[in-house]
Amino acid sequence: MPRRRTSGQDAIIWPGFVDGLSTLLLVVMFVLSIFVVAQFYLGQQLTERDTELARLTSRLDQLAEQLGLAREEGERLQSRILSLQDTIEDKDAQIATLNDELADTSARLEQAGEAVAATAEELEAEQALSEEQRAEIATLNRQLAGLRRQLASLQEALEAAEAKDIEQQAQIENLSSRLNAALARKVQELAEVRSRFFEALREALGNREDVRVVGDRFVFESDILFGSCSATISAAGQRELAKLADVLLEIRDQIPSEVAWVLRVDGHADQTPLGPGCRARFESNWHLSAARAISVVQYLATQDVPEQRLVAAGFGEFQPLVEGTDPASLATNRRIEFKLTER
């Protein structure tokens, strides 16, 4: 009886064991399938990122080369403009001299005409001309003809100088247009880099309602970084500024080396007057906003951002973003702004 009971139990356990083993095998195969699919999509995304990075690197190299060529062309055009301006000044001086000579010649011509007229009147009154008087009239007529030829020559010289002046002025306008176009291209390139900086910074900071883009500036509400009536950056604020510093260091190599760029940090306060305790440390909202901007600049410098690329400014309560004295409006106006610009 004991033996038969053991054999029956074994017969009952064996199908359950087979079912459990099959289920475990299916689970393992499912997990492996998910792992393989995940590895496939991850590898594909990494490949696309590498391709995009290579394309951006190539584009940056091209922009750097074009910027160098454009700057050389701008310097050459500027030198040419200065040379043409000097030439125009010389021509203007020559034209002024010719005008003086022309006026003098005209005066002499008028005097000679008056003399001839007076002599003719005298001769007609006398009705008898001596040989000496005839010779004097002939001399005056020759002088008058010579003065007229000299006047015509001066007039031709003046017209030639004016025509050359017009041609050189057109060359200056053309060179100025080319120089302005080259500068506009450089400004556009800096704007594209600023756009990539804002996009990368927005991704790094996440969808925060107290951090936003206003025009060409990235705006942090001061409450993220500082406590009330304080210019000391909080631990949470240091974490957010560290993200900004990382993004700036990543985007720095994409800015052409010829562009004298800086990150300007502007401090703003709300219109609420400082309390007695706060006035013991800061004379006004102006001093508070400037101190906060300087604190941010000093912290970014500790995060390896080059100090020569940082600028701090305080605006006090004089540049509000919104009107109103409710808590939300005051919080919006208490802010730190970051602007990537040229020096």
Rank of each mutant, 00 (worst) to 15 (best):
R55H: 10
L84I: 00
Q39I: 06
L123T: 02
R134S: 05
V31R: 12
A70S: 13
E75T: 13
A107M: 12
A128F: 13
D92W: 08
Q133G: 01
E101L: 11
Q133V: 02
D92I: 03
R134G: 04
M29I: 13
L98Q: 01
L77N: 03
L25R: 13
Q111F: 03
V27I: 08
E124G: 11
A64W: 06
S79G: 07
G113M: 12
S22Y: 07
A112V: 14
E110G: 04
E121Q: 15
S33N: 08
E121N: 15
A96M: 05
E65W: 09
Q62H: 14
N99H: 08
E75R: 14
E110P: 03
E73F: 06
I81H: 00
V36W: 07
A125H: 03
Q45R: 12
R76S: 13
A64Q: 14
L123A: 03
Q44N: 04
L63D: 10
E89F: 04
E73N: 09
A64T: 15
G74K: 12
Y41C: 01
Y41I: 03
E72W: 09
A118L: 00
L98F: 01
T119V: 05
A118V: 00
N99A: 07
L21F: 11
T105N: 05
T47F: 14
A135P: 00
N99C: 04
A118C: 00
G20F: 13
D104S: 10
D19S: 07
L69R: 05
E52R: 07
R71P: 02
A64E: 15
S22Q: 10
R80G: 03
E121V: 13
L109R: 01
K91M: 12
T51M: 09
I81G: 00
Q111G: 06
A128C: 13
L24F: 11
T47P: 05
F30T: 14
G113V: 11
D86H: 08
V116H: 01
E124R: 15
L42W: 10
V36Q: 09
Q39A: 13
D61R: 08
A70P: 00
S58Q: 12
A103G: 05
L56W: 04
A117R: 07
V36H: 09
E73C: 05
A115Q: 07
E73V: 02
S130Q: 00
Q44S: 04
E114R: 10
Q127S: 12
R76G: 08
E126R: 06
M29C: 13
Q111C: 03
K91T: 08
A128V: 11
L67K: 15
R59I: 10
R71T: 04
A120E: 15
A112F: 09
L129V: 13
L53E: 11
A107Y: 09
E121S: 14
S106V: 03
A115P: 01
T51N: 11
F30P: 04
D92R: 12
D19Y: 04
Q62M: 07
T51P: 02
G68C: 11
E122W: 06
A128L: 15
L77P: 00
V27H: 11
E101F: 06
L84N: 00
D100Q: 15
G68K: 08
A138I: 06
E110L: 04
Q133L: 01
R71F: 04
R59E: 14
